[in-house]
């Protein structure tokens, strides 16, 4: 556990026009990311993920606190971020009208590569991501997923010890996603790159991340490995019940479950202890309730459950300590 990468306690108030209340998009965040780690930032829309990332990339100055990246103080020297970080932002405006190949090459050149190196790296990255076939097409003419992949390619040209990727796989098909994750993995394995990933795709996050921080309203509400986070919800099991039409509330067991379920249309989601879950499943599959049941699933908790349990889905009223 050596090699501290970032220490970051910041209290940030601003954003939003004067006259409205200041929003603390980062409200005293402390975070250490280890070298060579794939670290995820998880959180609902507006939790402050992007604000945090913008401070790490030197795009935004924190009002207070410090950001240290690989031994460099980024608050004092924000311009150094560009020389340490490969950043994939959410927008592709700057590259939209370029061809895939020129976007990658130009980005490499602007990372200080000479022409020959930039071209060689461009070719290698496009090949790695399976973009060679569409290299001569402008980004604008590509589908959303392909465009995202092309921007990801541009972010990779010109090796950087830290990659910060803001929702890299938005809109991608499974093949493209796999290409992204194996490229990320390769950079970590071969070059020891540290990767910070912003996402709200929890299922995806679960499979690739070493550690996750859950962000809400500018605060870190949890930070652990996916397995460690899952222990937060204990050994609870998720039971999903799908009714054919109306739930049979006349069955006492079903009526008892009703208060604990989150209903979404015909689907009920419940988090239960193992014994309770067994009883519930027995009740709905054995008795008269079975006639009204369309489908049911029983699953061990996923990161999604953790996310919901921590308050990531506050609107759903599923908040638990």
């Amino acid at each position: 556990m050596r090699g501290l990468v970032k220490t970051y306690p910041a209290a940030r108030a601003r954003r939003g026009a004067p006259g409205t209340d200041a929003v603390k998009a980062s409200n005293g965040i402390d975070l250490d990311i280890r070298r060579g780690e794939i670290f995820g930032l998880l959180g609902p829309n507006g939790a402050g993920k992007t604000t945090l990332v913008r401070q790490l990339t030197g795009l935004l100055r924190p009002d207070a606190g410090r950001v240290e990246l690989l031994g460099h103080d980024l608050v004092r020297h924000p311009e150094r971020a560009a020389r340490l970080v490969g950043y994939l932002g959410q927008h592709s405006t700057a590259l939209d009208e370029l061809t895939v190949s020129l976007a990658a090459e130009t980005t490499g050149r602007l990372r200080g590569l000479d022409l020959r190196t930039a071209r060689a790296e461009r070719d290698a990255v496009l090949e790695e991501l399976g973009l060679t076939a569409i290299a001569s097409r402008p980004l604008k003419k590509l589908s959303g997923g392909q465009r995202r992949l092309a921007c990801f390619a541009a972010a990779l040209v010109g090796d950087r010890p830290v990659l910060i990727l803001d929702e890299p796989t938005t809109g991608m098909d499974p093949v493209a996603r796999r290409a992204v994750w194996s490229a990320v993995d390769r950079r970590r394995a071969e070059r020891g790159a540290t990767v910070l990933l912003v996402t709200h795709n929890v299922i995806e996050a679960e499979t690739v991340l070493d550690r996750v921080a859950v962000l809400e309203s500018g605060r870190i509400i949890a930070c652990d490995t996916p397995a460690g986070l899952k222990q937060l919800v204990g050994d609870e099991v998720r039971v999903d019940l799908v009714w054919r039409t109306e739930p049979p509330l006349d069955v006492p067991e079903v009526a008892a479950l009703r208060d604990r379920a989150t209903a979404a249309g015909r689907r009920w989601s419940l988090r239960l202890g193992p014994a309770e879950a067994r009883a519930a499943v027995a009740a709905v599959t054995g008795g008269p309730a079975f006639a009204a049941l369309d489908d049911f699933t029983l699953a061990t908790p996923s990161l999604e459950d953790v996310y919901l349990a921590l308050g990531g889905g506050r609107t759903e009223g599923l908040v638990k300590g």
Partner: peptide, 15 residues
């Protein structure tokens, strides 16, 4: 470019 967040691209490059 400014409205669409495109400046970020250049601002995060050492240029």
């Amino acid at each position: 470019l400014r409205a669409g967040g495109g400046l970020d691209h250049y601002a995060t490059l050492p240029v």
